[in-house]
């Protein structure tokens, strides 16, 4: 399945490579546009020394780690949010007659390699923040773990959004509120948001486990909202649980699929 996905992605990348100028412009564009996010953070810190109790470098770390997870999930899997297009155009029928999971096919369909620009931007921010944080070696192991968990969590959110579109074929935007909304939300320390939101993204849609809880561990900080210490190790569990829910929802969506006329 991984191999098939990679081969499909490679085919679309080759197709995109036939227009090298467009690819280069879009890649740089993605890098620059998402770079504006970090400009906003710098503007904030020109006026204040802390945001939600966190310093500039810490905020850049939280931004970069969530951004990296989001951008990689976006690059690899966000095309599943086009499922309603495939349902309406009937192209999902064509995917269902192939011996490969429609999830893999939808995710790889019209793969956009230029999204690598956003991955690079998040990696650069993380690369700037990390050396200045002096994370002790004993806690640094959490950084790759949280990025991987973040990728799984964001991918699951996209899959859930896709599954919902089997019911709401006309409203792909509903799903976007959670996918891109979730991406935006995790850019800042959750302590800047209200209690309700933090509780929601901890216990319902576990976005707090992308970078917030494991990030507190990496930074050696107490939870400003008072959750116990062990919660910050729950990212893998949260990622697996959400992925399971997403897989079941996706499967139910495929089973419920009604196809179009003719």
């Amino acid at each position: 399945m991984v191999r098939t996905y990679a081969l499909l992605v490679w085919t679309w990348t080759r197709a995109a490579a036939q227009y090298p100028l467009s690819f280069a412009l879009m890649t740089v564009g993605g890098f620059v546009v998402s770079g504006l996010d970090i400009a906003v953070i710098w503007v904030i810190f020109a006026n204040t020394s802390s945001l939600g109790g966190f310093g500039l470098t810490e905020v850049m770390f939280l931004y970069g780690s969530a951004g990296l997870a989001f951008a990689i999930a976006d690059l690899l899997f966000s095309n599943v949010d086009r499922i309603s297009e495939h349902i309406r155009a009937g192209t999902l029928d064509a995917m269902l007659i192939r011996p490969v999971s429609p999830f893999v096919q939808v995710a790889a369909d019209r793969f956009m390699p230029h999204r690598i620009g956003r991955v690079a931007q998040a990696a650069v921010v993380l690369g700037i923040a990390l050396p200045r944080l002096d994370v002790p070696a004993g806690r640094a192991w959490m950084i790759p773990v949280m990025v991987v968990c973040g990728i799984v969590i964001f991918t699951s959110v996209w899959a859930l959004g896709g599954a919902v579109q089997f019911l709401l074929t006309d409203a792909p935007e509903v799903a976007n509120a959670f996918t891109y909304g979730g991406g935006m939300l995790t850019q800042y320390p959750l302590s800047v948001y209200g209690d309700h939101i933090v509780r929601g993204v901890t216990f319902i849609l576990p976005l707090a486990f992308v970078n917030w809880q494991p990030g507190l561990y990496v930074l050696g900080r107490d939870d400003p909202l008072g959750l116990p210490h062990w919660v910050r190790f729950l990212s893998p569990a949260a990622a697996v649980a959400l992925a399971l829910v997403a897989a079941l929802a996706w499967r139910a969506g495929i089973r419920r699929y009604r196809s179009t006329g003719s």
Binding site: L8, T11, A15, G90, I97, R98, Q105, R110
Partner: peptide, 20 residues
Amino acid sequence: RTTLWWDLPLRDSFELIRLL
């Protein structure tokens, strides 16, 4: 409706099918 890929040359569509 076609089960081929709209934007790809026919030969590439066939190659994708070979992979799938």
